[in-house]
């Protein structure tokens, strides 16, 4: 069973996403900011991470950068799910390996489809993919 880490400072978002993903057959863990996510990564390794950008302590951007620069052994994919629609964020996300950019609001059903597709596509290869 694939394990997904959701990082968002809005508890309601985590609550709904968790509900939908569990229903789709995934194991879901949660963190409310970047620091919590890093603490989680010390012990557990998810297959996919979905993160917001605007978060306290350590934001999504810093989190992604830290993982890709300092944790090369972790090759899981990252979905950035944010209401921040600025081009700057979208372009920045392209510079990182296996990072996709999704803009809020996003349909939960579509998100599940993206996740399913990601796992299906990433099985044979580790190719980076952009969605949204």
């Amino acid at each position: 069973m694939k394990r997904i880490l959701i990082v968002d400072d809005e508890p309601h978002i985590i609550r709904v996403l968790k509900l939908a993903m569990k229903n789709a057959g995934y194991t879901v863990d949660e963190a409310y900011n970047g620091e919590q996510a890093l603490a989680y990564l010390e012990t557990s390794h998810p297959d996919l991470m979905i993160t917001d950008i605007d978060m306290p302590r350590m934001n999504g951007r810093e989190l992604c950068l830290h993982i890709r620069q300092n944790m090369p052994e972790l090759e899981f994919g990252i979905f950035i799910l944010t209401a921040r629609a600025e081009r700057e964020h979208r372009e920045w996300s392209r510079t990182l390996k296996k990072v996709s950019f999704l803009e809020k609001p996003v349909s939960i059903m579509k998100l599940i489809v993206y996740i399913d597709n990601y796992f299906r596509d990433s099985q044979p290869s580790q190719e980076k993919k952009h969605v949204g």
Binding site: E10, H12, I13, V16, L17, L19, A20, N23, D54, A83, R84, A85, E86, K104, P105, S107, I108, M109
Partner: peptide
């Protein structure tokens, strides 16, 4: 404006997600 958009989007996003879930079986 970017802030306002973001601040508006966050609650609207939550509303959208809850309402979408309500429409589905799991909700």
């Amino acid at each position: 404006i970017a802030h306002v958009a973001h601040e508006l989007k966050t609650p609207l996003n939550i509303i959208a997600m809850y309402s979408e879930t309500l429409q589905s079986e799991i909700g």
